[in-house]
Write a protein that binds this DNA or RNA. Sequence first.
RNA 1: GCCCCGAUAGUGUAGUCCGGCCCAGCAUAAGGGACUUUCGAUUCCUUGACCCGGGUUCGAAUCCCGGUCGGGGCACCA
Length: 488
Amino acid sequence: MPDLPNLEKWDKVVMRLAPFPSGPLHIGNARMVILNDYYVKRYNGNLILVFDDTIGSAEKQVEPEAFDLIPQGLEYLGVEYHEVVYKSDRMDLFYRYAVDLMKKGHAYVCDCDANVWRKEHKIPGKACACRSLSVDENIARWEKMLDGTYPERSAAVRLKTGMTDPDPAMRDHVILRISETEHPRVGSKYRVWPLLEYSWGIDDHELGVSHIIRGKDLVKEGKIEKFIWDLYGWKDPELIYYGRLKFQDAKLSKSKSRQEVLSGVYSGWDDPRTWSLQSLERRGIHPDAIRKAMLDLGLSIVDISISMKSIYSENRKLRDADAPRVFFVQDPLWVSLLDFPEDIEYTEAPVHPDFPDRGTRRIPLGLENHSRILGIPTKDYDRIKDGALFRLKDLANFTLDKGKDPSIKFHSLHVDEVRKVGGPIIHWVPKANSVPVELTAIDGSTVNGLAEPYITNLSQGTFLQFERVGFARVFDTSDIIRVAFAHK
RNA sequence: GCCCCGAUAGUGUAGUCCGGCCCAGCAUAAGGGACUUUCGAUUCCUUGACCCGGGUUCGAAUCCCGGUCGGGGCACCA
């Protein structure tokens, strides 16, 4: 990663995380979070968590749970912040500066209709009458905004960024407006709320922020902030933008997630479909896998589209060595074991093939009505030809009989026999003693299956590998064992 | 319509500021081999890129101009 610009200008690197609390942080927010945390740690700086909980809009609403869900996600990612600030606690500050700006003639209260203003003033670049109001008239109007004389949308404070700016986006932007929506933290204490670019123009200075790393969707906001800093002659923080990050294999929608969680369609904020940090934690994604993948993207301002595979690949590197192996059969097809030596009542399979010292898992063959019945994956049953030789991994070699009562006939013990003919080696579970397991897939669906008895030795939180199926994490053992699929 | 930004293999990224060490490095993906009682890990090999056109220069991925394509902004959202 490159150095941060103009370090010599600042005594200390101070950065901030500014999530809008509408839900938990998800994988799409991870970049912003990790980039900021990375640089703060690199320069031994300060990181401020600022809940950007201004009133929002009908589409963007503050979700009270987010005040807990966000720190939870940060803790998981190993992000260290040194201070927590709520925008909604700083309204007096924003009001004070608003009045100051009006007194200095830099802002005015505009009572034009928003649509009219856009068509007749912004687009042609012509000032409205409100722009030339006296200071006293502006203050009088401001009081009317505060005391409720003006209904919602009938007046707003505009900053005089200039009506002739070639960029229409920069023409006298609104910086404060009226909203009577009740706020989850401060209720109806305030009816005038600042907009992002204004509140940050003030706060990045007030909080002593030295470097701002944010998505490039905020460059216009950055320009307005800079306008404010220049107005006051403040030292301007360094603005760094990165491009939009899309995941080819994950559809991210906070508003949809919120809706589905609240209505109960999703199992909760940790449902895999939310792609929340919580959901990734539940699946056993190591935070450093996310961190590594995000840092690998660098700071480019170009929009990029990556695959979750890069995170999964990092996760495998981080966790494969610790993941015990377990047999799990999702859709067992039961077969009788024929001609198998009766004195062999169980088999031993390595807990981890690369680390023999970790011992073995004992898989009893068990008896069901005096016979031995084993479950194999239906997919493998379909694939293996009638009469073909194959191997049950860590047990023995068999030939398959696809009669009306399917059975497998013992052939030989040693793996070489099946190797010679290139027969498949598949996993299996005994009918007796196996344990029901509910597996949550990435698409949120749950599938039921059976795992070998060894799984009961694994505590909640264990990251394991279902052989030939994929990696998963045990997230609940309270009733039935429940496991969340991580990746192949 | 107006404004801003960007363009290196399938996907990302390094290099671009201060032109030669880049016939372009790395990761991931894909394909193949070895190893392994997993479709995991490990290991070896292969595939594959400087948007286009001009210019400057002994020399350009790097500098300049034009074009093309892509993204974003123009909200009383964040």
